[in-house]
Computed example of a mutant assay.
Amino acid sequence: MENLLTQYARLVIEVQLKLREGDSLSINSEASTLTFARLLAQKAALATRQTVTIVHTNHGKVVDAIPIEPIEKEIFRPPVQGAVMCHIVDLDEHPYLTPTDLNTAAEEVTTLGKYGLLADPVFLDRRIAVPWANIPYPGPRWALQLLGTQASEEDMWRLFTTLYRIEDEHGFRFWEEQGNLLAYRKQKLNERGRCRIRLVGDLWEIGATMAKDTLWAGGRQTLPSQRSFFSSLPVQAIHAALDGKSAKGTFTSSRPFYVLGQVVKGARFTVEDGLVTEYAAQTGKEALTALFSVDENAKRVSEISLADHDTVESHYLEKSIHPHFAREMTSTIVLGGFSLDNLTTQQYEGDIEESALCSSLVRVAVPVGDSHLSVTLHSEDGSESSVMEEGIFTEEGLV
Rank of each mutant, 00 (worst) to 15 (best):
H324N: 07
E328P: 10
K319T: 00
T332M: 10
S331N: 07
R300T: 15
V301I: 15
V301S: 14
S314A: 11
D308A: 06
K299D: 13
L306C: 09
S314Q: 03
A298F: 12
A326H: 03
L306R: 08
K299Y: 05
D310K: 03
K319Q: 03
D308S: 06
D310H: 10
F325S: 05
T332V: 10
E328M: 11
H315L: 01
H309G: 07
N297Q: 14
L317W: 03
Y316M: 08
V301M: 13
E303A: 12
I304C: 14
R327Y: 03
S305A: 11
H322S: 10
R327V: 01
R327S: 03
L306M: 09
E303W: 11
S302L: 09
A307H: 03
K299A: 15
E318R: 13
L306T: 08
S331V: 04
R327A: 01
S320K: 09
L306N: 08
E318C: 10
E328Y: 09
E328N: 12
R327M: 01
H324S: 05
E313S: 02
E313G: 04
I321M: 05
R327I: 02
L306A: 12
A298M: 13
A307G: 04
S314M: 03
H324E: 00
E318Y: 12
S302I: 05
K299V: 14
S320L: 11
A307P: 00
R300D: 14
I304Y: 13
P323E: 11
T311F: 09
F325Y: 11
R300G: 15
I321S: 00
T330E: 13
P323L: 09
S320N: 11
E303I: 11
M329C: 04
F325I: 06
E313V: 04
I304G: 14
P323M: 08
S331M: 01
K299I: 12
S314G: 08
F325W: 08
H322W: 09
S331K: 02
S320F: 00
